[in-house]
Amino acid sequence: MRRKKEVDIVKVSRLRKLRKEVDEHLISGKEYEARLRGQHAKLNPFTGWANMDRKTPHPGASDAESDAWCPTV
């Protein structure tokens, strides 16, 4: 049987920023994960260059460079 996890977000000072209300102390593990993801998204805005399609050639790349990437040994 799986036990539900709870996280005390007041005990650790770094986690206090995850509170939605001042008197909130314990949150479920799933809610903790969701709030961490939200905080990460807030601090690290979307970067379009990181999600470029691999088949799309990079601007300024020659045809030979955009066909395939082969590391040199």
Rank of each mutant, 00 (worst) to 15 (best):
V73L: 12
V12N: 06
L15D: 03
K30F: 06
P57F: 13
D67E: 15
A34I: 07
A64K: 15
A61Q: 12
I27V: 14
G29A: 14
V12Y: 01
K30W: 03
P57M: 13
K11M: 04
R16G: 15
N44T: 14
L26C: 04
A61G: 03
K42H: 09
G38M: 07
P59A: 15
S62V: 08
P57Y: 09
R19H: 06
G29H: 09
R54C: 08
L15G: 00
R35S: 09
H58R: 15
L36P: 02
F46I: 13
K30S: 11
G29L: 08
D23W: 08
H58Q: 14
V7H: 01
V12C: 02
D53N: 14
R14G: 04
V10E: 10
L43M: 08
I9Q: 05
K30I: 07
M1V: 10
H25F: 05
D23T: 03
D23F: 04
R2G: 07
V7F: 09
R35E: 05
K4W: 08
Y32D: 04
D63N: 08
D67R: 09
W49D: 12
P71E: 14
K42D: 07
P45T: 10
F46E: 11
C70P: 02
A61T: 10
V10C: 09
V12P: 00
R3P: 05
M1D: 10
I9D: 04
P45W: 03
E21T: 12
G60T: 09
H40P: 00
T47Q: 14
L43E: 15
A50W: 08
K30A: 12
E21N: 07
A41K: 07
R2F: 13
K55N: 15
R14A: 11
L15A: 02
K11Y: 06
L26A: 01
E33N: 07
G29P: 02
I27N: 00
M1P: 06
A41H: 01
E65D: 15
P45C: 05
S62D: 14
V10Q: 15
V12E: 05
I9T: 01
H58P: 01
D53Q: 03
V10D: 09
E65Q: 15
V12H: 02
A64H: 14
D8V: 00
K5C: 09
K20A: 05
L18V: 00
A41R: 03
K4A: 14
T47S: 11
D23A: 04
P57N: 07
T56R: 13
E6I: 02
H25I: 14
K5D: 11
R14L: 06
I27M: 06
E65C: 02
E24C: 00
R2Y: 11
R37C: 08
P57G: 08
A41Y: 01
E6V: 07
I9C: 06
E33H: 06
K42R: 14
E6Y: 10
D23K: 04
P59R: 12
L18F: 02
M1K: 09
D23P: 00
A68D: 11
L15V: 00
F46P: 04
V12T: 05
S13G: 01
K4F: 10
L26Y: 14
A68Y: 12
T47L: 10
L26T: 03
D8A: 02
H58D: 13
G38R: 05
E65Y: 10
C70Q: 13
H58L: 15
D63W: 07
R19Q: 15
